[in-house]
C-alpha cells in the first residue's frame, strides 16, 4: 500500500524532524533562561536564594527537597561531567537516547496487521 516514493518522502520528513530536535537541544539550549521554572518559583517562594539559586534563608517548600539520588551521574543537570558550556552536547545525547528508547518501545509495540484506514 505504501509506495517507494511515499516511503522516501516519509524518510525525508523524519530526518528533517530529527534535525530540528538536534538543533534545538544542541544549539538553542544555550539561549534557555536560567531562572527557576513555574514549579520551582512556587516552591522557592518565601526563601532568599544564594547566587546559584539554592534557598539559604526564610521558609519555603523547596527546603524539603532532597538531593537527587543520581546527582553525581555523568550527565547530571544537563552537563557533561559537570563541565561549563556542555549543555548542547548533553542535549544531543538526550535526543539520541530518547529517540532510541521511545522508538524501540513503539516499534516493538506496533501492530503488525495491515491497517485499512488509508
Amino acid at each position: 500500500m505504501t509506495s517507494p516514493t511515499r516511503d522516501r518522502r516519509a524518510t525525508g520528513f523524519f530526518a528533517g524532524f530529527l534535525l530540528v530536535a538536534l538543533l534545538i537541544a544542541g544549539g538553542l539550549s544555550y539561549l534557555a533562561s536560567g531562572d527557576p521554572d513555574g514549579l520551582d518559583t512556587v516552591t522557592l517562594t518565601g526563601c532568599e536564594l544564594s547566587a546559584d539559586g539554592e534557598p539559604v534563608a526564610g521558609t519555603c517548600i523547596a527546603q524539603n527537597a532532597g538531593d537527587h539520588a543520581l546527582a553525581d551521574s555523568p550527565f547530571a543537570d544537563y552537563a557533561v561531567g559537570g563541565g561549563e558550556g556542555t549543555v548542547g552536547l548533553a542535549g544531543i545525547v538526550g535526543v539520541v537516547v530518547t529517540l532510541i528508547v521511545a522508538g524501540g518501545i513503539f516499534w516493538l509495540l506496533r501492530s503488525r496487521r495491515p491497517t485499512d484506514e488509508q
Partner: peptide, 16 residues
Amino acid sequence: AGLVTAFVFAVQMINF
C-alpha cells in the same frame, strides 16, 4: 512517535 518523543525532550530544555 519516537521522533515526537525526542522532539519534546529537546524543546523541554528551552526555558523561556
